[in-house]
Design a protein around this nucleic acid. Structure first.
Lengths: 310, 310
DNA sequence: CTGTTAGCGCGTTCAG
DNA sequence: CTGAACGCGCTAACAG
């Protein structure tokens, strides 16, 4: 009663074969008569056979579980990603188990350990830790791990080319004639800040040769950085900051650029230019890497969505 | 190597007892010498023993997995709830498995079936289905199920008293002297719309005896419902609608009330009055019901958060 | 109070 | 190509 779906043993009895043969048919293993395979497959479909993940993972096979480790759901970026990933995994018969680190390095380790103990088939991780020792630990788990948001040296990354995206966006801003760029830099208190670091570096490199003035400000000092008699523009490496500065920008006739293009913008009809990319593609890349081992070759493509705030 | 944590068998060998005794100690079962129990518990702690959920659930015990079925993460309400629930479950050694229905009744059944097959210990469900037949099916699963958002007759609900909350909010609005109340009613195309239905009913009952004019409008016709030379106010049963109407309200000097008090409001410093309640308390109630069987006796308390939009 | 045993459903040997 | 047997880690039932 507990599990409505039938077991391989029952299937075996029904088809008049052994459990081993059923296993060979179900899991596309070699060494089985094509006819008996078809017969078993047909019966499996008829009786609605579904593998039991617990038994399977105990016997050393896949668990069909994929772990996801993110900060929280405060930033809609993660919500967007989760929705896509969950859908993507579902379609392939996998379930996702999400855990939150709340940007606490200790919790990150706890999350990973928990997921490992659940014998997930892989982990999608937005890391806050970094360093060789940490990566060694992750590698020792011997399960596929792919990063999102922040990066790790020896693991694939499902995301955009942060450097290129920010460089292009900055160039566009410069081309619009602004002569004072205020980069709103988050406090980089954490360990792994690769995403934000790459964006900042790209911004600095791109503006190095420009004639425009440049200020790098903390979120709470951004407003005070506005210069009079200048064409000011806020460059925000996250929509979250941009949203908070939207009013200030408008009141001071300054331009403003966001990053991530949260669904929120369209949902609430907010006129904020933002660097956008296909989150579902990132999710697909991550899932494909974990499920099929498909290597992540190219970064996800990005676009600048213009709504008139620059 | 796969599972770094030791097994009950190993613990048994270490303590010089049988596996059965270890089980009795670990799971607070009766019929064991308090001294041997302490000895085993100490060893378990020392060696970092952690139960294997797959083995446990296969043997007919708990899986320490709790299923969550919600529409999606578009509405921040669900993100808020999930964050709280996940935290709450974590603290008690449970993990959550989230699935999305996308308001598709067929998917809702799929989600529940999947979770059931994973032998989750219980399900937190925001139902879109309803009706006796459906409830019978859920009951036949013989696992604890608690609803959030929408309700079902024969299952506990972790949430506020929607009727009372809307009634009180409406009364407050009336007390502020508005003489034209525009209720923004969602399209109730789904099957289970209990939450929205209760709120609308409460609004209508509360305004029945009032002298103020009342209009019930669809989200896209709300603006057109504004009456000239009147003190208009929008009553939105969801912050999502309120956020979209915020500008219209301001431009027309109309009041506006939201519902749910999304974290977004504080995050972006949005001045919207909204009916608020402690989401984490709802999460705790839901978790306690599933984990310990604690009955949900009283609804979660609500408050009206005033930010000057009424 | 404690030890022993069986079995959950599946993957993986090893024989045939 | 197929069948039989074992073990994963745990709970439950029965013996002592």
């Amino acid at each position: 009663l507990k599990h409505s779906s039938i077991s391989t043993a029952q299937l075996a009895k029904i088809c008049g074969v052994s459990q081993g043969t059923v296993d060979r048919a179900l899991n596309n293993r070699k060494g089985i008569n094509p006819q008996t395979r078809e017969r078993i497959l047909a019966a499996a479909k008829e009786y609605g056979y579904r593998p039991n993940i617990h038994a399977r993972s105990m016997a050393g096979g896949r668990s069909s579980l994929i772990g996801v480790v993110v900060f929280d759901l405060d930033n809609q970026y993660f919500s967007d990603f989760l929705t896509s990933l969950s859908k993507c995994c579902d379609e392939q018969g996998y379930s996702t188990v999400v855990m939150f680190t709340e940007k606490d390095p200790g919790k990150e380790l706890e999350c990973i350990r928990s997921l490992y103990r659940m014998s997930v088939d892989g982990i999608v991780l937005c890391p806050i830790h970094s360093g060789e020792e940490y990566e060694n630990y992750l590698l020792s788990l011997e399960i596929p791990i792919v990063t999102i948001g922040n990066r790790l040296c020896r693991f694939p990354h499902a995301g955009i080319d942060d450097r290129l995206a920010m460089a292009e966006a900055t160039e566009y801003v410069l081309s619009r004639g602004y002569d004072h760029l205020i980069y709103v830099k988050p406090r980089l208190g954490q360990q792994n800040t690769s995403a934000q670091t790459l964006r900042l570096e790209a911004f600095l490199e791109t503006t190095a040769a420009a004639s425009a003035a440049v200020t790098v400000a903390a979120p709470d000092t951004a407003e005070a950085s506005l210069l009079p008699h200048r064409q000011n523009v806020f460059i925000c490496p996250t929509d979250v900051y941009a949203l908070r500065l939207l009013r200030v920008a408008r009141e001071n006739a300054a331009g403003i650029l966001g990053f991530d293009n949260l669904r929120l913008l369209d949902q609430l009809d907010i006129r904020l230019d933002s660097v956008s990319y296909d989150v579902s593609q990132a999710a697909r890349l991550a899932a494909a890497y974990i499920i099929d081992g498909t290597p992540v070759t190219a970064p996800v493509r990005h676009t600048l969505i213009l709504r008139g705030s620059i």
